[in-house]
Write a protein that binds this DNA or RNA. Structure first.
Lengths: 191, 191
DNA sequence: TCAAGCAGAATGAATGTTCATTCCTTAATT
DNA sequence: AATTAAGGAATGAACATTCATTCTGCTTGA
């Protein structure tokens, strides 16, 4: 009867609107309406718009991270780990269009720049399994000796673009095609 | 003495501000000020903000196109043409940061979606040398038999991401590294 | 009865666009 | 040559709108 989780309602409404309309196409009033909540109520749970947007990013990012880390073959060879991660990445984002579009919006906005910097330089100091993967690969000389950022680009750029095309309907990223991308990406970073 | 080319001044100011501040960080008043022009004057040359933004895109796009088409080895093998285009792409955008950032902004905005659709489906019907290149490659079985969009992604996504990192300072895309990217991209589309 | 939660109207800042007015160049007239 | 008139270009203050945020008073549950 009595709705308890207003914060959750707000997040859910916000992610849908922000993912679909873009960060500048979803005013607070619209989010409030979709959440079935007064405009002022949002501010009881989030200090301001920026905080809301960053909170959604955090939650979304955590979901992907949890998904990828589950059953991650941490002690297997680099190649196998690479395929596991990229395949998982594709699977998750094919099944969660909203998450994908939200993260894309975020990364292509001023918010994203700061975040990318922290990530690449690994400023947070937290254990990053992708970071580690590329490091291991370089040490074992199974992947090219290029900067980390370049590995990210070679490995993930085509995947992200393909997912974008998949969700906008320009491309049907079926299993067969997905496998082609993953292999192509591996071929482009391997020794 | 006598400034003649107000339209040019406006475009120049606009591209600088829009590329650097993003589409939402450069109000018309700011563009007008930077152009040394009254706010209303902009509307003598461009019907509204959208028209201005699209006009800049067109002009920018034309510049790249002209650069790439010059000395394009149209009748050479697919591989050679591919290297010519991608190398040219990198060279041009390394030397023209504003153009690069503007185009990126544009493609990651609602304006970009429409444009991408037209481009991929080749709705305009105009001769597109990249389109043709991939077509030829497929027919001659020197590159994989995958949808056109996928070729775009495999070939250009890592390049574009690397250029972005280069311009934000995350990566030094020197000649050596550029060559690695180009080769990696070719490896990922070739048979 | 009271306190906390809440809705939605009110507010004020930001910004795209308009338009009445001014300025400038050129052509016509004396 | 000097003066005037006309037409278009330019201006920037004013306007209308949008939108994040705040405020006020109502509701609800204890």
């Amino acid at each position: 009867m009595c709705k308890k989780d207003k914060r959750g309602d707000i997040i859910k409404a916000a992610i849908e609107l922000l993912a679909e309309q873009g960060f500048h196409g979803a005013p607070m009033a619209m989010i409030a309406e979709k959440a079935g909540v007064g405009a002022g109520t949002i501010y009881r749970y989030f200090e301001n718009r920026d905080v809301l947007i960053n909170a959604i990013y955090s939650e979304t990012h955590d979901r992907v991270h949890k998904y990828l880390i589950a059953d991650y073959p941490e002690n297997r060879p680099v190649r196998e780990r690479f395929f596991d991660i990229v395949r998982g990445f594709i699977t998750y984002y094919k099944n969660n269009p909203l998450d994908f579009r939200y993260i894309e919006q975020f990364h292509n906005s001023p918010y994203g720049l700061v975040h990318r910097k922290e990530k690449l330089l690994n400023l947070t100091g937290e254990y990053d399994f992708i970071h580690t993967l590329f490091q291991d690969g370089k040490e074992q000389q199974v992947i090219k000796d290029v900067p980390l950022a370049m590995h990210f680009n070679l490995a993930f750029a085509p995947v992200v673009w393909s997912l974008r095309d998949h969700h906008t309907g320009f491309l049907d990223l079926n299993d067969e095609l997905a496998d082609i991308v993953v292999h192509a990406c591996w071929d482009s970073i391997k020794m």
